[in-house]
């Protein structure tokens, strides 16, 4: 396998996806989970721009990346608002404690 310049970016994309997925799986804190989701979003952003470059359709890749940025930001905003409400109502941000609640 020859190491093209885009291969480094591709390795970084896979690394960011791995780190984000691992964080999403092991985190118990709601805010840490949102941070892991943000890392996954960064990986998708880089992947779209890189795929656009590799495919010769730079504009398409960048337009999709713009959509990813907007969606990722909305996910963060709504997720953080939910985390604050959960903390106010239940007094914890531990997802294990939340899953044990009844009603």
């Amino acid at each position: 396998m020859t190491m093209t310049p885009l291969t480094f970016v591709l390795i970084a994309v896979i690394g960011l996806l791995g780190v984000g997925l691992y964080g999403l799986l092991i985190s118990r804190n709601l805010i840490k989970m949102i941070i892991a989701l943000q890392i996954l979003g960064k990986a998708a952003l880089l992947a779209f721009v890189m795929a656009g470059d590799a495919n010769g359709q730079t504009g398409q890749g960048q337009a999709l990346a713009m959509t990813v940025i907007v969606a990722d930001t909305i996910v963060a905003v709504v997720g953080l608002a939910l985390a604050v409400q959960v903390r106010r109502r239940f007094g914890t941000m531990d997802i294990k404690a939340l899953s044990n609640l009844k009603g």
Binding site: P5, L6, T7, V9, I11, A12, G15, K42, L46
Partner: peptide, 12 residues
């Protein structure tokens, strides 16, 4: 773009 790759690795 090589530098971009290394910076992306630093982001990891």
């Amino acid at each position: 773009i090589y530098i971009a790759g290394f910076i992306a690795l630093a982001a990891v």
